[in-house]
Amino acid sequence: MGPYLALGQCATVFDPHLNRYVIHYTPGADTALLDFKTAILTHNIAGTALAAWYVFFVAGNLLSRNSIHYHIQFKGLIGRLFRQVKYYMSGMFRGEPHPFPAEDENKFNPLQQLTYLSVMAGLIPPLILTGLVLLFPLLLTEWTGIPNAIVWVAITHTTFAFLSSLFIVMHIYIASTGHTVWSNYRSMLNGWHTEPD
């Protein structure tokens, strides 16, 4: 299950982003990566898939034990965050061990926990919501009576999409800081986390 979920996640997450760049930057440049119509279509499909995946993700976390990974312990949080940052900034270069190795009860380090929670709760929902609104551009004005409200929705969508693409780049990079460079990518596929024995 895990591997498929991860792959599905990749597909639903990547496609909108690639396409966003295509859709957003195409007409200025004369070179189009993708035919514009195709880009729009896949973006719509992938965006809808992302929305569906999100519902699945929230439901899954509510119903399973997985949500414990998102329970932040506020006591001493600052100190722990600081340790994690220090590890990324210097400890890692000196080959020090991870300050918060992944465990069954605690998959994420404090920094990851905080970031993932804010991405999942603060970034993705508005992204999906604005995206859904953009699928039906005329309804918004019908409902709210505010002319050109769609422009602000579009700008919000773009901003959040951009932030989430920053997140993705960092996320992918941070994944290379596991036990070995490739171990985390491997564990995404087979679902097991490898630790030094």
């Binding site: 551009p137 005329l138 004005t141 505010i146 002319p147 050109n148 409200a149 769609i150």
Partner: peptide, 8 residues
């Protein structure tokens, strides 16, 4: 509807 909408 405002400009952008009317064009859409």
């Amino acid at each position: 509807y405002g400009f952008v909408n009317s064009v859409i």
